[in-house]
Nucleic acid binder design. Sequence first.
DNA 1: ACGAACTTGAA
DNA 2: TCAAGTTCG
Length: 477
Amino acid sequence: MNKYLVWFRNDLRIHDNPALHYACTNPEALVSGVFVATPKQWEKHFVANCQINFIYKNLLELKKNLLEIQIELIIHTCKDFIESADWIFNFCHRNKISKLYFNRQYEYNEKKRDNLVKLKLHNITECITFNGNLLISPKQIMTQKIKNYRVYRPFLKRCTKIFSKNILYILPPPKIRKYSTIKNNLLEFDRCEIFNNKKYNYFLPGENYALKKLKKFVDTKLNNYHINRDFFSINSTSQLSPYLTVGALSASRCLYLIKKNSKNFTNEKNPGLFKWYSELIWREFYQHLMIAYPFLSMSEPFLKWTNKICWENNPKYIKAWKNGSTGYPIIDASMHQLKQTGWLHNRLRMISASFLVKNLFVDWRIGEKYFISHLIDGNLSSNNGGWQWSASTGTDSAPYFRIFNPILQGKKFDHYGNFIRFWIPELSAVPDHCIHFPHNWAVENNIKIHYPAPIVQYKTSYIKFRTAYLYAKNNLK
DNA sequence: ACGAACTTGAA
DNA sequence: TCAAGTTCG
């Protein structure tokens, strides 16, 4: 009897999963699933504990869902990618697997691992791979001159053209298998220490929950998304990024709903929908960018000459930024939320990134690494893209003279200071109009607040960065 | 090859 | 206005 194996990686779902779907088209075959955890690899790349925890919890849900269609999910732990490639090879060899199915990953190390597996399995097991994670395959989206897009807007326009022309299919989950591969229906996760950590319960795991959450967002928040999305204290975004990262939800499922909700999803008549769609394409854009320019995943800036900037990297400043004790409430509140929940609104990511780079004059890569090591939705390409955008080192990034003023941003988007009071209770007595910079108010009213003084002055600190940036640009480009 | 366009800001 | 080069059709 034919034995097929589905190798799950960042696609922990049964809906819209090409590898799983096509492995199951032969009703006679024996289909099993496998996931290989690689703790050392994760550690080396600073994957956040909350994300690892989230992966395990999602695996549990995946296992349950696969159980219902009589497919066993084997979970094995290896050290790193190299070892996992060996293990997959041995597994296929030992169990006489005739076909191995998986959805492609395009990152540098992942691709290297997969090529190794393919090479080893040559003449033993047929490897069948799919694009299960991107909305569009890398080669299918090129400029007229057959070059990779470097600028977001034309990329978006091209995507829109393609998507409105093509019909989008969402693959259903497989039907119950004729022959079961279930050996045990125990959910053997209890020994995983991280999994038992009760600290991380902000995002409920699982594909079923993600689909419900998506539907609820589309039904209740999508229409006003463009108006509400920037106000980070009112929960107006979809908060689906963790599910997209582990693949409990596919981006194409989101696109499918977008198309379903509007015949012409590009139409300005649907501004909320269009805005959300364009955010989804940002995610896509940064992935394509990293595929085209792998050096982006190796701590290299897009603009090479920015390597010549002499970052100050003051350890005191770095520590204060990480701990949320900079004396700028919006920054400190953000850093508290990041540490405690593993999630931050995108605007807050931008404000705190801008502050680290352009006020504290710290190398953006230090911030990039810190975010990855704390984010539940941490994703190499989006995180890197966002940081390079903020630091003005990317190809399509904010101009260096564009800087977020943490006080003004706070006043604009957290007008009543609700967000700040939630994360910094020490400031709860400060009146609304002073909460974004409470220091002067405290002095004038002779009130002692338990809150650090600002570590840098906004304006002078920015000039320092700007001077160094321009120096590198003009002299060393 | 020419010209339009270029996420998110602030003074 | 800062500030301006590059990308893309």
